[in-house]
């Protein structure tokens, strides 16, 4: 990517700028869409279509008293929300938004993404632990268990894509899909990755670490102000990240008919999956924590392994 070098800072700045704004805009999108699904209006007072709710929310979060409970473990309490934002933002480093529009085309891009999203579990565990609150602790325990079990087959489900494209680099994976998007041969892998992605971002129906009706706000019960805002933004960026990954790995990334520029294709596809995330939140109940684990280990893991085996067999057979 030598020719991209001059744009290096521009791209980093651009990605940061776009991602933080997407996360902020999702506040509005999610609330309006949820309202639409639920026969309500949603925020429609501030600004045209209620768009300024984003500003109102951000101002509120920024100017709230930065409260740390006296019983909390102060350094860890501060560190935890930072981790979630940092790890998610770092993952965006390897996402190819369009040809040449990528911060770093690592040859182990996929592994880098997996590593970073695993690190995100720390924010939940540390946040829940440092809060020194029983609800937070329960949320953190659930979060840790959920993350660990879902990491396993999240990684495995992606191996099918790697087998087909022969690379860990996300740019090469996208380019390998120019003939056929991988969601057709890898439909099983796609579904599993999608489910694991929801669990990874702990969104409803897998918002078990938060579980409002059970654990008040779960691992971030004690957080307020911008520290809570970081978890909040982290969650939105998390679903953006998973949507980006789905598009990159299974839906041909920037690929699409020529009448639109590649980056627009990427954005459109990502937006579609973002809305699916929101629709899921509006429609599904929450399974119990042990049911989720059972579902993961007893159903999804074997399916993933079979999928991997079949894919490997087919790839071998085609090559011979």
């Amino acid at each position: 990517m030598e020719e991209a070098a001059p744009n290096y800072f521009l791209i980093i700045g651009g990605v940061l700028f776009v991602m933080l704004n997407v996360a902020a805009a999702l506040i509005w999108v999610e609330r309006r869409l949820l309202a639409l699904f639920q026969d309500r209006y949603g925020p429609n007072r501030a600004g045209p279509l209620g768009l300024l709710i984003v500003a109102a929310d951000s101002i509120k979060l920024f100017f709230k008293q930065d409260w740390i409970p006296p019983f909390a473990d102060k350094p860890v309490f501060i560190l935890a929300p930072a981790i979630v934002v940092v790890t998610v933002l770092m993952s965006f480093v390897v996402i190819p938004f369009a040809p040449g529009v990528i911060v770093a085309d690592l040859n182990i891009g996929l592994l880098f993404f997996l590593a970073m999203s695993s690190m995100g579990a720390y924010s939940i565990i540390l946040g829940g632990w440092a809060s020194n609150n029983k609800y937070s602790l329960l949320g953190a325990m659930r979060g840790a268990a959920q993350m660990i079990s879902y990491e396993v087959f999240m990684g495995l489900s992606l191996m099918g894509v790697v087998l087909l494209s022969g690379s860990f680099s996300l740019v090469e994976i996208v380019e390998a899909q120019s003939g056929l998007w991988f969601f057709i041969p890898q439909i099983v892998g796609f579904v599993i990755f999608f489910i694991a992605g929801i669990a990874e971002t702990h969104r409803l129906p897998f918002d078990i670490p938060e579980a409002e009706s059970e654990l008040v706000a779960g691992f971030h019960s004690e957080y307020s102000g911008m520290k809570f805002g970081m978890f909040f933004i982290g969650e939105y960026m998390g679903i953006t990240l998973i949507s980006c990954m789905i598009v990159t790995l299974y839906f041909g990334g920037w690929l699409g008919p020529d009448f639109l520029p590649p980056v627009v294709w990427f954005i459109l596809k990502t937006a579609f999956f973002l809305m699916i995330f929101i629709l899921l939140r509006a429609s599904m109940p929450r399974p119990r924590y042990d049911q989720l684990m059972e579902f993961g280990w007893k159903i999804l893991l074997p399916i993933t392994l079979v999928n991997l085996l079949v894919t490997a067999g087919v790839v071998l057979w085609v090559k011979e």
Binding site: F37, Q38, L204, P205, A211, S213, S283, P285
Partner: peptide, 13 residues
């Protein structure tokens, strides 16, 4: 009840 088990929408309908 639906909300207690995590389903957000029915309560509005």
């Amino acid at each position: 009840f639906a909300q207690d088990v995590g389903q957000l929408s029915p309560v509005f309908y």
